[in-house]
Simulated scan of single mutants.
Amino acid sequence: MELKVVASAGTLESSDIQIIIEPSENGIAIELESTVKAQFGDQIENVITETLKSLNVESVKVFVNDKGAIDPVIKSRVQTAVYRSAECNDYKWM
């Protein structure tokens, strides 16, 4: 999927995650801030990466501010940000 604009999804509320993505030319780059980074940082990055790959996004810069979100919330926020960035209204939720 081709990303066109900077887009975001999510909030900074407890148990949520804010995802901001922007188009890039240099593969997938993730900048993660999280209240649980020491315990779950690798898992959060894996969920984000796998969700991006499932949407055929190969080049993107992702800014993440996590407040303890669970995997399904992370996945849905990434999907929403990608669809917004691609300016796509044909949602194929997984």
Rank of each mutant, 00 (worst) to 15 (best):
A86C: 03
Y91T: 08
V62C: 04
V60F: 01
Q79F: 07
D42M: 03
K75R: 15
S24A: 15
K75C: 06
I74K: 02
I48D: 01
A29V: 15
A7C: 03
N89G: 15
E31V: 05
E2I: 09
L32N: 08
Q18E: 05
P72V: 15
E25C: 01
T49K: 12
V78G: 00
R84H: 07
R77T: 13
M1N: 12
L55Y: 03
F63P: 00
Q79K: 00
E31Q: 14
V47A: 12
S76W: 01
G68F: 00
K37Q: 12
F63Q: 13
I74G: 02
E25N: 13
K4M: 00
L52T: 07
I21N: 07
D90I: 02
V6M: 12
P72F: 10
S85Q: 14
I48H: 01
K37G: 03
R84W: 01
Q39W: 10
I30W: 05
V82M: 04
Q18A: 08
A29T: 15
K75S: 10
M1V: 14
I44T: 13
I21A: 07
E13P: 00
G41F: 09
E22Q: 15
F40T: 10
K37Y: 06
A81H: 04
K4W: 04
K75A: 13
S76Y: 01
D71H: 05
S24H: 12
P23Y: 06
E58Y: 10
G68Y: 07
I19Q: 02
G68R: 10
L32P: 07
K53Y: 11
E2G: 06
A69K: 11
S85F: 08
I17K: 11
I30S: 05
E45V: 09
R77N: 11
E31F: 04
L55W: 08
I74P: 01
D16M: 13
V47I: 07
E13A: 12
V78E: 04
S85E: 13
E13N: 15
N46P: 00
D71A: 14
V73I: 15
V82R: 02
V62F: 10
A29F: 14
V60C: 05
V5H: 10
E58I: 01
N56K: 15
G10S: 02
A9P: 07
C88Y: 07
K37R: 14
E25Y: 05
T51Q: 09
T11Q: 04
S34Y: 10
S14P: 01
A7W: 03
T49D: 12
